[in-house]
């Protein structure tokens, strides 16, 4: 069909007809194959554009607006931005997010690497152990968070009971989620416990990618296990560590569910984090513009980490 059409289009100049018809049919074929390709893309792209791209663009606009969700939207200029610096809750949320990240990222990374090295050895029941380490990651958050609260219950929980039997004075006992000095520790411990198995799997893949000849060469040089770890394993795992750090940092910036379940951001604002503040400002105060401005802060934090890390990676 495409051939007959293009012959007609080429008109009545027989000598020159060959080339244009070929060009035309090639173009037609190109358009046709592009249409086929777009038909493959369409179902996903339409949903993606409407429900993801659209809201992302809207978020950037909304940050510079005043809106309570029912009355008219008004332009706010930089009002929401300046408000960030006066909002004590935002400042607390910002620093809590940073503290959570700075503590939980290295802790999770170290635990994940340790587990991976331990379970990379040929031991009996290795698959079972790996599965066990991984399970907290897939377990329903609400279910495990409620157990966590019970285990760390300051008055009756088994953790404090064990500390008590070990001879700790009840007055010095950590109050965990109910204690402003320990609440952050409680949610960080939970985060490390829940996610280290996931990063262990990534590290295991990284370990399996290391060329065994490197270890043999190190053996010939008389290196001990620690030296092999420092001079072979760690540098060889560089790309994996990079990836894990970026993932973990971004996850930490986004932390919400476990804090909502374990401490509700308290006591006071001691575990209130950015996403919690976004949630409160949007769905409790209905201050949608301001909540979007806080969301932009979160966005730039994530962006900054991604950019800085990728740059350093490229230098390496």
């Amino acid at each position: 069909m495409s051939i007959s059409n293009s012959t007609i289009a080429a008109g009545d100049a027989p000598a020159a007809s060959r080339r244009p018809s070929k060009v035309l049919s090639r173009r037609r074929r190109k358009i046709q194959s592009a249409l086929v390709a777009y038909s493959f893309l369409a179902p996903n792209f339409l949903g993606f554009a409407v429900f993801t791209l659209g809201p992302i663009l809207f978020a950037f606009v909304l940050a510079f607006m005043h809106w309570d969700g029912s009355n008219a939207i008004t332009f706010a200029g930089l009002d929401n931005f300046w408000r960030l610096f006066e909002d004590k809750v935002f400042i607390a949320a910002f620093w809590n997010t940073i503290i959570y990240t700075v503590v939980s990222v290295p802790a999770t990374l170290a635990c994940a690497l340790g587990l991976a090295i331990l379970l990379n050895q040929k031991i009996f029941g290795r698959d079972f152990f790996r599965t066990a380490m991984f399970f907290p990651y897939v377990a329903s958050l609400v279910a495990v968070a409620v157990v966590w609260n019970m285990i760390f219950n300051p008055e009756m929980g088994p953790v404090n009971m064990i500390l008590y039997t070990l001879g700790l004075d009840p007055k010095d006992m950590p109050g965990w989620a109910a204690d402003r000095h320990w609440a952050m520790v409680t949610v960080i411990l939970f985060g490390v416990w829940k996610s280290m198995g996931y990063y262990m799997v990534i590290y295991l893949a990284g370990l399996q990618g290391i060329n065994s000849e490197l270890y043999e060469a190190a053996d010939l040089d008389g290196a001990n296990s620690w030296q092999k770890f420092v001079y072979v394993t760690v540098p060889q795992l560089g790309p994996t560590t990079f990836f894990v750090t970026v993932m973990l940092t971004i996850q930490s910036f986004k932390v919400f569910d476990q804090i909502y379940m374990i401490t509700q951001g308290g006591p006071g604002t001691s575990t209130l984090v950015l996403v919690y503040h976004i949630y409160n400002e949007a769905f409790i105060s209905w201050d949608l513009g301001y909540s979007s401005m806080i969301a932009l802060v979160l966005f730039f934090l994530v962006l900054a980490v991604t950019v800085v890390q990728f740059r350093r990676q490229r230098e390496d």
């Binding site: 932009l296 994530v302 991604t306």
Partner: peptide, 11 residues
């Protein structure tokens, strides 16, 4: 890389 929490409100 875009966190869902950034655009959950407009969504």
């Amino acid at each position: 890389a875009m966190p869902w929490q950034v655009y959950m409100v407009p969504q």
